[in-house]
């Protein structure tokens, strides 16, 4: 194929690594991961619509060890994608595009997402949440 032998423009590999690059790709990874979480969310709603027996089976799956790990990973992805998404929306409004500001808000986003995740993870699995 002639298209594959053409010279390429400078690509990702030529840049010195900066943690903002990791934050950027993490936005995509968490987004794609949550697309699979959307399947679980809809399945959960469908099980509730189907009746008590199906709902009990769905919550047993979600409450199992693997289910809890998946829920925590989806929750972590949501927290990061939500906070970093606000950063993206600010950039779209031409706010915070300065290199130093963008790096600072990256650290802040990570910290806020972490705090949010810990709080929500506690609320999701604390005794009051009523898991078996």
């Amino acid at each position: 194929m002639s298209t594959q032998t053409r010279p390429l423009s400078p690509h990702l590999g030529i840049y010195r690594f900066m943690y903002t690059m990791a934050l950027s790709i993490l936005h995509r990874i968490t987004g794609v991961w949550m697309a699979f979480g959307l399947v679980a969310l809809v399945a959960w709603l469908c099980s509730a619509a189907a009746g008590e027996g199906d709902y009990a089976r769905a919550t047993a799956l979600l409450g199992s060890a693997i289910g809890r790990i998946l829920l925590l990973l989806w929750l972590a992805a949501f927290c990061y994608h939500f906070v970093n998404g606000l950063r993206h929306l600010a950039w779209d409004a031409l706010l915070g595009l300065e290199k130093r500001t963008a790096r600072l808000t990256g650290r802040v986003a990570l910290a806020v997402a972490l705090v949010g995740f810990l709080a929500l993870a506690y609320l999701l699995f604390c005794p009051r949440a009523g898991w078996p």
Binding site: A48, E52, A56, T59, A129, W131, P132
Partner: peptide, 9 residues
């Protein structure tokens, strides 16, 4: 309480 069918519905 997420495992309570009645409460969730």
């Amino acid at each position: 309480p997420l495992n309570d069918y009645a409460a969730v519905t």
